[in-house]
Nucleic acid binder design. Structure first.
Lengths: 138, 138
DNA sequence: GTTGAAATCACCCGAAAGTATGAGGCCGAT
DNA sequence: ATCGGCCTCATACTTTCGGGTGATTTCAAC
């Protein structure tokens, strides 16, 4: 605030100086006006930048997850398989997944096996890693 | 460019209009100057914003991984345990980790067990998930 | 010079994960 | 109507994981 007031005062001072110099030398009104306009345009640009720059904060944004349908189609994963995969990524065991999905442990194993085949991996940790890289899961 | 020229022309026109109106009415020079200054300050602000805004591109930056030493100390993980954890996150089996680290499978198991205890998790998938959230691994 | 943390390894055992194979029901497409 | 994919489940088997326990060595710190 004080800084802005000071700068403004300086400008006004400059204005007055130019005023006197030009008026005494009887130079055309248009040129004088042009100078003033130019001066305050520059001032405006400076002011605008000063006011908006701090607002542009550098911050790391975590982009919201969005499923890559294209990649999903490529893998050929079914809905159920994707669900199981997602739960794996949350660190759940096969039994916990079975319980949450109201299906048997064996069925979860079947899904996981076929899911591993489609992703061409051998372990759930690999599957999760790959699925994240391919934006199949958050 | 053309747009800017047009806007500038408009401003000059407005200036002239004000000029005529005020001069004919014989209003004080200071007020006239003040108005001009204000007008061009606003113009400057607008111009400055127009020119700089497009430069501020919205882009998602993947921040380079940096280990959170603070969190690492909190967990009390040893160097070897961290290594094992990192390899787990790459989807490697205990045997593969043992081979890459030139240690026995049993030793890897020991490390993983103590690592699970320190992170308070039960499975490697949970450990990997947590470690990522805590910036212990990329 | 003891103490303690870290790293190494071993053995056992049960639990979980993963493989192989088969099978039944459902549904949409040819 | 039959064919294929999906979902479901089962049995049997192998492999991997993880817990428990104990031991040795090294190395730095007190």
């Amino acid at each position: 605030m004080i800084a802005y007031a000071l700068v403004l005062a300086l400008f006004v001072l400059a204005l007055k100086l130019i005023d006197h110099r030009f008026v005494t030398k009887d130079i055309s009104m248009d040129i004088y006006l042009g100078l003033v306009a130019l001066l305050f345009t520059v001032f405006g640009i400076w002011l605008g930048l000063k006011l908006t720059r701090p607002q542009v904060k550098l911050q790391v944004i975590t982009p919201p997850f969005e499923l890559d349908h294209q990649k999903l189609d490529e893998t050929g994963l079914s809905q159920r398989e994707l669900e199981v995969l997602e739960m794996m990524s949350k660190g759940l065991s096969n039994q916990e997944i079975a319980d949450r999905l109201f299906i048997s442990l064996n069925t979860v194993k079947t899904h996981s096996t076929s899911l591993f085949t489609k992703l061409d991996v051998k372990r759930r940790t690999q599957a999760v890693k790959l699925a994240k890289e391919w934006s199949l899961i958050p």
